[in-house]
Design a binder for these strands. Structure first.
Lengths: 369, 369
DNA sequence: CGATAGACTGCAAACGATTGCAGAAACGCT
DNA sequence: AGCGTTTCTGCAATCGTTTGCAGTCTATCG
């Protein structure tokens, strides 16, 4: 079948062990034989068998990335970034789709460690914490994007509190007083943290938090649709909606289309995490970018370090954050008075009038004074 | 570290070989010892080491799926389907992103065979035909969605000629005489085949093929935008556009939004391959479904069969097609049929008759095309 | 010139499983 | 009881590498 080390050794008239040492560079080998062997190996097209090697060394040069699904565009770019990074240092990346099913995730997990992966980056569903914790003894693990509270694994998170804060503040600075929030389930890290960022921005601006403006739900488009309808049907509907639940975005857009709502003229819209077509949507949709590339890079950094420092256990830091940033496009508009259509005359005398740094809002088309 | 076969054998006071035979079920083993061993193995938490097993058997129980990217939604569902299917028969699926880079694809390919994968399903870029052909000697390979002309690999294709034919015929049956086609590069299987299906439907209906209505381009949104503009700017623009290039769809939608064109009142739109948000877009977009799930299933079927019938080489059939079907939603509209009885070439401009579709046509704030 | 360190090299034993072959036990039959 | 079958079990080799240990060779020094 394929060329083995033995073949190379025979061709070079040395023993297998010498060949091994020469090719791996380990051990003492004379300069000459080393060069000779690499040449011969190349000529013969020798490729070391990772399986045999793995059996002996206990390593596989395989790193797995386990995500629950790939519909979220961020995961696609993360996967690509990671694959490139890992390949550069000699690892093959295994991308596995865990599904939302706990059993499925669990099975995949054991299959992976059976295969003696050298490292694992996982977006935990939170349903297999115990297993993850146990596995962490055998293989370096880094959690991504979500924290699993049942473990104390090293975790790389988006700075969701900050991202949600930035987004909300942006809308407030544009003059919005009633900002609807559609956010994810409150039993997830991101769900909670984004809500808190939203609240913080409101507080900071002295705007009271109105519970009727906040909708938390599952990570599916339907959530977005129903939440959006409820928001719009409010007696005093919001002048801006912050969709801080990526998966809900489609549902929101659907309702907006259904009702022929003009964005941003009738309603400002801000979303979370980019989609490739957002900038081509009319109007182009402004977003809070959670920094997927940075997340991916940091996760790989952490994992590699962890894999190197095999024995070294608890090294202090367990949680990393990567910054979020606002990407302004055309779906948010400056308004003067908060509620435009609701009859109630709003006391426009906002107390601590924020808007100290209006920032050059991108081509604000209609900032009537 | 982990429990080995030796541990189990010792605990059961039998030899390793007996333990192996009992647990794998191969060979002759007494019913009693078999049960006893399985029990002990379970108690000890024994998990066979796939690496060691692989070294001996030459198999890895790993199957790879290599795609060039995951942005195409079809690939995501295919990946999920395949993973589930393969897991059910005891294989772990490796999902690899080849990128559009030939070198990258090539590297990944060799890494995979180095790891002794048992099978490979690949969406070939067409740039590594020679390598694929060589690899096919070592490992069963099935091509998916695209054919690599440099090889004679077994290939599972969508029925693009039929799909394009169905779509075009649908539009024709709705009364459209001028159907614009936006299609992929003509050096790809799908690009050519979809064009041919379009032409066939036209011919069959006695409609002359107008080259100015046909735009072939790269698999990127920009293609869709520029093609769409050109079509709309024609002296006699089409009354329907068939976007048979999935990746171009976003560009088309963008132009339609830009120009405030009312779909389907002013223009009928038919796309190829679903996206999860198509049914929520307003209007919901009709598509030709290429049958991603079926494709995935068939590919797995073929691969598994091929993996079983190891030695058996050329078994005749080399190309499989899975049927396409039309999914009618709201983006295509019947227009006044020019002539029901004779093929009278009637150049009359379609009048804006609103009678036909009772649906709440969207405000129609726009002028005519 | 011989001893000795130092630099390489080869032998052989792992790693954890599978598997051909031969020996042992159990069974039925005359 | 003796014999041939059948049924099970164990020994040992093997897959392709790595690696501890011991042996060989060269060169250097006294």
């Amino acid at each position: 079948m394929s060329v083995t080390l033995k073949d190379v050794a025979q061709a070079a008239r040395v023993s297998v062990s010498t060949a091994s040492r020469a090719l791996t560079g380990t051990g003492l080998t004379s300069e000459r034989t080393q060069q000779r062997l690499t040449r011969i190996a190349r000529e013969l097209g020798y490729r070391p068998n990772p399986i045999a090697r793995g059996l002996k060394t206990g390593q596989s040069r395989l790193v797995a990335l386990l995500v629950h699904n790939l519909t979220n565009a961020s995961f696609q770019v993360m996967a690509e970034v990671m694959q490139a990074r890992l390949k550069a240092v000699g690892y093959q990346m295994l991308l596995c789709i865990g599904g939302d099913d706990a059993q499925q995730e669990s099975d995949t997990l054991t299959a992976l460690v059976d295969h003696r992966i050298d490292g694992l980056i996982v977006v935990p569903t939170g349903k297999n914490g115990a297993q993850l914790k146990a596995l962490a003894k055998d293989v370096p693990i880094v959690c991504l994007v979500r924290r699993d509270d049942a473990t104390d694994l090293e975790t790389v998170l988006a700075d969701d509190p900050q991202g949600a804060y930035l987004g909300t503040r942006h809308l407030i600075e544009l003059g919005h007083k009633r900002v609807g929030l559609i956010v994810g389930r409150q039993d997830t890290t991101s769900g909670r943290e984004r809500l808190s960022g939203y609240v913080r921005a409101l507080r900071e601006a002295g705007i009271p938090v109105d519970d009727t403006l906040i909708h938390a739900g599952h990570f599916v488009p339907e959530t977005g649709a129903t939440s959006c309808r409820k928001l719009l049907d409010l007696p005093r509907p919001p002048s801006a909606i912050f969709v801080a639940n990526h998966e809900a975005t489609l549902g929101v857009l659907r309702v907006i289309a259904e009702r022929n709502i003009a964005v941003p003229d009738d309603l400002s819209l801000l979303c979370y995490e980019d989609m490739p077509w957002f900038e081509w949507h009319r109007p182009a949709i402004s977003i809070v970018d959670n920094g997927a590339r940075d997340l991916a890079n940091l996760a790989v950094d952490r994992l590699l370090q962890r894999m190197d420092a095999k024995g070294t256990g608890n090294d202090g830091v367990r949680e990393y954050r990567v910054g979020a940033r606002l990407v302004q496009r055309d779906s948010c508009r400056r308004i003067e008075v908060a509620s435009t259509r609701a009859g109630k005359p709003k006391p426009s005398i906002a107390k601590p009038s924020a808007a100290k740094s209006p920032s050059k809002s991108s081509a604000a088309k209609s900032a009537k004074v």
